[in-house]
């Protein structure tokens, strides 16, 4: 009898666990989202288009400051350094780092969760992007990256070390579904 009760309890637990969504499927973020760049690559535009396709309420401000978080419930940080993009935005590397740091500090102070994206793949890796990944990923609640950009496992290593759920996608077209799942 004791064995039957224990088996029943174990089965119930298994069924309950199966019914629970995985970390990647759980809605971790609320709308509206502020989408901004870290590094000023134009990949931030892809995030904006795909967020719209996912039906999310979001606003794109490439060089957002802390004040832009006023009405946001999620900060989407799109990693990707572009010297041309930085120049176009009238920024240099120290200023960009300073801007992102102030944004992250504000998000932390307000309890706004951060979703980090890297959408440029292998072509959008480089010293500055890698440096930003190491600096900003630990603050994320979740990260979604294009698989080709993680060939050397950089994002995996950082996310595993900091306990950040990481979702790899093959291509940017595949971003819509993970976004739908990640947002309430």
């Amino acid at each position: 009898m004791k064995k039957i009760l224990l088996s029943g309890a174990a089965l119930s637990l298994l069924l309950a666990a199966a019914a629970m969504p995985s970390a990647a499927q759980t809605a971790l973020f609320e709308q509206p989202a502020l989408i901004t760049s870290a590094g000023q690559s134009a990949d931030v535009q892809i995030a904006s288009v795909q967020a719209r396709k996912a039906g999310l309420r979001s606003v794109l401000i490439k060089a957002a400051g802390p004040k832009d978080l006023a009405s946001a419930k999620t900060l989407v940080l799109v990693l990707g350094a572009s010297l041309k993009g930085l120049g176009a935005a009238g920024l240099d590397t120290p200023k960009e780092k300073e801007r992102v740091a102030s944004l992250l500090a504000e998000a932390k102070a307000k309890g706004i969760p951060i979703l980090v994206l890297h959408l440029g793949g292998e072509a959008r890796r480089g010293d500055l992007t890698d440096e930003m990944a190491a600096a900003y990923l630990p603050a994320a609640r979740m990260a979604i990256v294009i698989k080709s950009g993680n060939k050397d496992g950089l994002f995996t290593r950082i996310c595993q070390a900091k306990g950040v759920p990481l979702k790899e996608i093959e291509k940017t077209l595949d971003l819509v579904e993970p976004l739908k799942q990640a947002f309430k």
Binding site: K84, G85, G87, E122, A123, R124
Partner: peptide, 11 residues
């Protein structure tokens, strides 16, 4: 694969 590059307003 294509990179996306925004046209710099100051160029």
């Amino acid at each position: 694969d294509f990179r996306l590059e925004a046209s710099p307003p100051n160029l």
